[in-house]
Write a protein that binds this DNA or RNA. Structure first.
Lengths: 255, 255
DNA sequence: ATCCGGCTATTACTCCGACATATTACAGGA
DNA sequence: TCCTGTAATATGTCGGAGTAATAGCCGGAT
């Protein structure tokens, strides 16, 4: 395993003077950075399910961090179902079906490297199931405020394209607003997951296609149906939207 | 806040001799127990979103545990989106829409106390969306092994009733087998969530109804449709199953 | 030869106390 | 009133010491 830049805070220069600080991304704490690093390593397959990580002391030393920081990172991974630690046995990578793949962080780690084609397809299949149903509920339950937020997101998408961060954020806001309008907490949780999927795949599409299809009409149709309070039309429109998005993404991933 | 039994390991008797060990559930580590305790406190509304927990030192002292153990517990809660810690600001409970409500642990904490009626309804609404679609996919993609597992779970449900732990486990296995047969990792993740919902609500129903409806016919219909490879019939049958389960649960929760 | 039960070495788990860092909140000045 | 510098404070990180649990080995019984 290549030992790239150490994550440590208090590493010293050759002359012994303490180096002020190591760059590790703003606002992110050390144990968070370790969790990030380990999470990506696991999601990318660098550690396979069943593998045993080297012991706490060894690993912490290799990363040049304290055992406390390393342990806190492992607790995070444990909480997300990626690993399990037991005395004498060590810390082992859990089987894939125990992973919390819909956790926002895990999702981010999964898309940090080269995204797995099959997993992207799985996510779209889930979207194709959940989002039309959500649109149906939203058409029944939305209030004026929901519609306002959707309209605003839609206009923001028009102004900025999906090539910009702002545009992608608006896209996510639009879908998020729909899920929010379902008034269902269990569905709302999927916002982060679906939003991440939307975001990453959109970004990926953008990378490999010169002239992406204009997404506004599809979104507008969904909005109109929800605003009109027509559940069936909303579900249908959203179904079309996801289907088209899947086609675009699929064609972008195998050039 | 009532200070019940301390979680500490190394508390001493009055004469100073160390007490061998404190009961805190088998196989569960100290920080896990703290996370459990805090998680239930948050999910039960004892701490509201926006509330600030007392400082690490104070809280750790109150629980009679070391700061390390307390911190590791907080990292777990942070990983599940329940809280966020910042220097100087303290550890605050996050708004509800950031909570990972589908996380198995969070779900368990949510159902540890009195389950929130609205949340149960939300979960069933999600089931009503996901499970029929999953049954449809399963009917298309299941192989012989999937069917074998489903059949076995079905027979186990017949032998033991839903009043027994074994029976409930078989129920969960049945639904889990269907999700597994979709060959979709993103859907499979919902196994834990849906399984938990199924389990807790079933248990709850059992508590308050003398003569619950026989669930076998519904499940059998779903199995037959999947075995026959009929997607539409499978989706329909599953839709009926969830609908009936919802009715039973609803009537059980408001006597 | 196989299975069961106790032993031991290894590993994670917990505790402690000190120091570093970040950020809020306040005070002072423009 | 607003901005800027500063100090207080809670989290973050560190290193080390000691405890507890268990996986895997070994010996004995079947």
């Amino acid at each position: 395993m290549a030992k790239d830049k150490p994550l440590s805070n208090d590493s010293e220069a050759d002359d012994g003077r303490p180096v002020p600080k190591q760059t590790r991304g703003p606002g992110r704490r050390l144990h968070g950075a370790i969790a990030h690093k380990l999470g990506m390593a696991i999601l990318s397959g660098q550690y396979a399910p069943g593998d045993t990580l080297s012991g706490e002391v060894a690993f912490a030393e290799e990363l040049e961090v304290s055992r406390s920081a390393y342990r806190e990172a492992v607790q995070v991974l444990t909480a997300k179902g990626l690993v399990e630690s037991r005395p004498k046995a060590g810390t082992r990578v859990m089987p894939r079906n125990r992973w919390n793949l819909l956790d926002p962080d895990v999702l981010a780690w999964a898309f940090a490297g080269e995204p797995d084609l099959q997993f992207v397809r799985d996510l779209f299949e889930l979207r194709a199931i959940v989002e039309p149903a959500a649109a149906r509920l939203a058409a029944q339950r939305r209030d004026r405020e929901d519609l306002r937020i959707m309209k605003e997101a839609l206009m923001a998408m028009r102004r900025h394209t999906l090539a910009t961060d702002i545009g992608r954020a608006a896209d996510r806001d639009f879908h998020s607003a729909i899920l929010n309008a379902t008034r269902n907490d269990a569905i709302l949780v999927l916002t982060a997951s679906i939003g991440a999927a939307v975001n990453w795949t959109t970004q990926f599409k953008q990378r490999s296609r010169a002239l992406p299809r204009n997404p506004i009409p599809d979104h507008a149709r969904v909005y109109e149906a929800i605003a009109a309070g027509d559940p069936q039309a909303a579900a249908d429109a959203m179904g079309v939207l996801v289907e088209l998005a899947l086609e675009d993404t699929a064609s972008a991933m195998q050039p």
